[in-house]
């Protein structure tokens, strides 16, 4: 008995994110255009949000007068030095936790205890310990980036395929060779994705540190603008921070693509 032929309905598809170029920028532009329109037309009051084009003008003015650089340069140095210390110590401790049972048993609870402390709350203490100068700012950023890096690193070391380690042992590789050639490269993907989180935390703490006893720096600039209720300048500072965040994330993305080419 012939029956009506019809195509089998398609039920697959989806659940596989693909890169859509330009979507992010379009959303951004749309949002800015909306705010620009709202602030100009008046249905967003100028106490709520500044006019985006005014913020852009403020930024351009800063760049022209050189103020942008006087604030950005010390901030970048603080972020770089602080997170370099925090991240490298974090990776070292994380690898040790991953490799040695005693270090794990001793330090994991300690790290768990330090992790949830809002580092900003410790700032006055840091000023007493390290002085009001740069050292306390480095220390704050270093401590803030240290804990998430430790957690990401030892997680990554734990996730290294044990069969590869077993293989290394079965070929009589030296302990140091196994760590250098099998464990560390195997943990690299996890360490790099932990770095994204750590550096974002670093930027947050940078601003916090600069709100206390800093003459120059993005954080100081924002604090100043805030206390004068100068929304254009405040948002100009926020934009700089966002750009900084996007930039670090982009740099890590590049590093991932270069170092993890083997993942395809």
């Amino acid at each position: 008995m012939p029956e009506r032929a019809r195509p089998v309905p398609f039920r697959g598809g989806g659940f596989a994110p693909v890169a859509k170029r330009g979507t992010g920028i379009a959303v951004f532009a749309l949002l800015l255009a909306l705010i620009e329109w709202g602030t100009r037309a008046g249905w967003i009051s100028n106490l709520t949000l500044p006019v985006p084009s005014d913020v852009a003008a403020t930024l351009a003015g800063m760049a022209r007068s050189g103020a942008l650089w006087t604030h950005l340069a010390p901030s970048l140095v603080r972020l770089a030095v602080g997170s370099l210390i925090g991240v490298s110590a974090g990776i070292a401790v994380g690898v040790m936790i991953g490799l040695f049972s005693y270090v794990r048993a001793g330090l994991v609870p300690l790290v768990a205890a330090i992790f949830p402390i809002p580092k900003i709350a410790l700032l006055p203490l840091f000023v007493i310990w390290f002085g009001i100068d740069e050292a306390s700012k480095y220390a704050l950023i270093a401590l803030g980036t240290f804990t998430p890096t430790v957690v990401a690193t030892y997680g990554a070391v734990d996730n290294v395929d044990r069969s590869l380690v077993r293989m290394g042992q079965s070929f009589g590789l030296k302990w140091s060779s196994i760590v250098r050639k099998i464990v560390l490269p195997g943990a690299l993907p996890g360490i790099l994705s932990g770095l994204r989180v750590s550096l974002a935390i670093g930027i947050i703490l940078l601003v916090a540190a600069e709100m206390l006893g800093a003459e120059h720096g993005i954080g100081a600039y924002i604090l100043q603008a805030g206390s004068l209720y100068d929304l254009e300048r405040l948002f100009a500072g926020v934009v700089i921070l966002s750009v900084l965040g996007v930039l670090t994330s982009w740099v890590i993305g590049r590093a991932e693509r270069r170092l993890l080419r083997w993942r395809g």
Partner: peptide, 14 residues
């Protein structure tokens, strides 16, 4: 004494 493993155990980054 040298092994050949079921899951090959090759380093994917080499």
């Amino acid at each position: 004494l040298t092994y050949v493993f079921q899951d090959f155990a090759l380093l994917p980054w080499r």
